[in-house]
Amino acid sequence: MKMRDSISKKQECKLLPNQRVVGKWHKNSYRIIKQLGYGATGTVYLAEFGNELVALKIASDSMSISSEVNVLRHFSKVQGPSLGPHFIDTDDFVTTQGVYPFYVMEYIQGESFLPFVRQRGAEWVGILIVQLLKDLEKLHQEGWVFGDLKPENLLVTKKPYQVRWIDVGGMTRVGRSIKEYTEFFDRGYWGLGSRKAETSYDLFSVAMLIINRSYPARFEKKGHDSLRTLLTKFREKTELKPYESIFRKGIKGEYSSGLVMRKELIQIIQTTSFTPQVEKQLKSPLRKQQKGLKKKKRKKKKLHIVGFMETLVVASFLLIIYILYLFGQTM
């Protein structure tokens, strides 16, 4: 019996494309398409269930699966349209190597958070975090902390752009010890707080999402003064300057709730001009165009510049309108 337990804890269930996973109890059949990701508690696959795409997570440890299923079930009843994946099914998969628990949830299609905000102006990290803070407030009011809050656990969907979280493995009841964490986003790693599940733990991670936009490779802790290190790193990136007060208060644990942090962030975005980012994006192709027009007459160059200025004005106007529209979606 001990040998069997040892094997079940170490041996993983590898699923292959087109393989069928049939539940022992509910008899639902899922066709595996590809692997989506792998974590501490199991492997997630894209699967087909009838005519619907779903995400199937399978593991060797039934306790971790049960915990995540309970969380999904709970928030499937109370969540709004922008929170995590909806729960669909849970069952056991019987193989010759053993019985593996799995659960099925909504498959959320979107773009990874970090590439999304890095490919766009600095205002976008603020816009998306405004949405995220609204969802976190709902989570905290239900007595839960997200825990392992990082870009890898976030997706940005389209029409309109919206943040969704895709992994609930780190969610922890308020007051308990954080179950899962990633060092860069963990205040305990930086020596700026405990790993107790509370609102300020998540808000520290939110602040680290902002700095991660400009340090995609991240960086490690050096020395004993982590607060000074983080603030110095933050100030080295001029595009992050508008968010400095949000970042500083977030990592110091000075916010009482996500709503307070959200309110301050909205004020910053509404009163800060991010148009230089748009101008930079538009000037880049203009410079390339001008290099090819060196031999042409000055009159034509003036026409191009006038056309560029008109384009810049229109682009800036459209950006402002779209930001206002997104805020309307999140209020």
Rank of each mutant, 00 (worst) to 15 (best):
Y325H: 15
P242G: 14
G121T: 11
H224A: 08
Q35S: 14
K77P: 05
V69Y: 06
I58Q: 09
A40H: 09
T95K: 09
V104I: 12
G193T: 12
P285F: 12
K288Q: 02
I268K: 06
Q35G: 06
E244F: 12
E152N: 13
K159H: 08
N212G: 05
I58N: 05
M208C: 11
K2E: 13
Y322N: 11
V156G: 02
G126S: 10
L155R: 06
A217H: 09
S245G: 00
L240C: 01
L230H: 04
P81Q: 11
E236I: 05
D91G: 02
K221W: 02
K294Q: 08
L326Y: 07
G50R: 06
W144I: 03
E111R: 06
E279F: 11
L149G: 02
K14H: 07
E52Q: 07
K294D: 04
L53I: 05
V54P: 00
V44A: 03
W124A: 02
G23T: 00
C13I: 14
K77E: 15
Q267H: 10
T90Y: 13
F327I: 07
E68H: 03
V206T: 04
T43P: 02
N18G: 07
Q79S: 15
E52V: 03
L326P: 01
I127C: 01
L155A: 04
A197Q: 09
G126D: 08
K249T: 00
S284H: 05
R298G: 12
G188K: 00
Q277N: 12
Q119C: 07
Q267K: 12
K57C: 01
K283H: 05
E123Q: 12
K288W: 02
D61I: 00
Y243E: 09
Q97S: 10
I211W: 04
E152Q: 12
I323F: 09
K294F: 01
D135W: 03
D167K: 08
L139N: 10
H26M: 09
A40P: 00
S245F: 02
H224M: 08
K77F: 10
S62T: 13
S177F: 10
F204V: 07
S6W: 11
K301N: 08
R118M: 07
T157Q: 01
S273A: 09
V44C: 01
P85G: 06
S257C: 12
V71P: 00
H140F: 01
F49N: 11
D186N: 14
V314H: 13
L56H: 04
L192H: 06
Q19H: 07
K252F: 08
Q270R: 04
K158M: 00
F93R: 08
T43C: 04
W25R: 11
M208P: 03
R298V: 12
K57R: 03
P216V: 06
G223V: 02
E244W: 13
S257N: 11
L46Q: 11
L324Y: 02
D135Q: 14
